[in-house]
């Protein structure tokens, strides 16, 4: 039996030596990895999904974005990844504006970041092992034995080293999500965006994954953005929190500020109260008249 290192980032040095992309040799600790100014956006259907968003995500921090279902969190992450263009405003990642970039320039920036998709988005025609190996095979010239060790290390970190031969269809929802997480950190990116990393995890996996995200972030000097609904778990690991409601940032602060916040919205969200300023309903006409006979759906 081979011994596998407990720390998921061991072996990093040889690994970077073999990578075509080198980590930034002069990391500036004080700057912002992501800067968003007065951003607004609507999908084709016309309804404005994001309005007047301003954000600063400093290097080395773990920042959470919280908000109700449908408030535009995934959309915001896609903006930061350059997959969607804002209708107005500016998005800068690693100091470069994404708004008028061509595809190859965006690809160059994307090689320094990665995203965990909300539904995993594992490649269904590849095994768990190949899914995690995929970014390495595509972007590096590592030899096969190195890839094997790295993949097993990443899978070990999410507790699924034994599942490396399974196909995505043979994984449970929570397992698939953890494999997707292993794939997202496969190349140790500088900026990792996690879209609901805790959804569908049991309490044990949940804290392990939370610790892992924090540990990875600190070990690599990376920056992490977590979109999540899990207030209590994320308060334990994040540095800063943005609250989004209805496409706007309505509150922000450090974990301690959030915990003790008396802002009604934040209070309601953090303590999960049903009664408060947060509307549970998607914008809709008045309930009573909507149910009344003869009205349109």
């Amino acid at each position: 039996m081979r011994e596998f290192p407990r720390c998921p980032t061991a072996g990093l040095f040889q690994y970077y030596a073999a990578l075509k992309i080198k980590p930034d040799p002069h990391p500036v600790s004080a700057d912002n990895v992501v800067e968003i100014d007065r951003l607004s956006f609507g999908y084709n259907s016309g309804r404005q999904v994001l309005a007047d968003i301003n954000m600063r995500i400093p290097r080395g921090k773990v920042v959470a974005i919280m908000g109700q279902s449908g408030c535009g969190k995934t959309t915001l992450l896609r903006m930061m990844g350059g997959a969607l263009r804002p209708s107005s405003g500016d998005v800068r990642v690693f100091g470069e504006s994404l708004v008028h970039k061509k595809q190859d320039e965006i690809y160059r920036l994307r090689r320094r970041m990665s995203m965990l998709f909300q539904f995993g988005a594992l490649f269904t025609d590849m095994s768990t092992f190949e899914n995690v190996a995929f970014p390495m095979r595509e972007h590096t010239r590592l030899d096969e034995s190195m890839i094997r060790d790295l993949v097993l290390m990443k899978l070990h970190a999410v507790g699924l080293r034994g599942a490396s031969h399974l196909m995505p269809s043979e994984l449970s929802g929570g397992m698939a999500r953890r494999v997707a997480l292993a794939r997202a950190i496969a190349l140790d990116p500088e900026l990792v965006m996690y879209d609901e990393p805790f959804a569908g995890l049991d309490p044990i996996s949940l804290s392990v994954i939370g610790q892992l995200i924090r540990a990875l972030n600190d070990a690599l000097g990376a920056t992490s953005i977590i979109v999540t609904h899990d207030v209590q778990e994320s308060l334990k690991i994040v540095d800063y929190i943005y609250f989004v409601a209805d496409g706007r940032i309505i509150a922000q602060g450090t974990a301690d500020e959030v915990r003790s916040s008396q802002v009604p919205y934040v209070h309601q969200f953090v303590w999960g109260e049903t009664d408060g300023p947060v509307p549970f309903q998607y914008p809709a006409p008045d309930y009573a008249s909507h149910l009344g006979a003869g009205s349109k759906p």
Partner: peptide, 22 residues
Amino acid sequence: GLMKATEQLDAMDMMAIDPVAR
């Protein structure tokens, strides 16, 4: 179509791998 519906193509794109090429 299924790869697109399950965001596999988006995921590839996010990894800076062009799905049209791959």
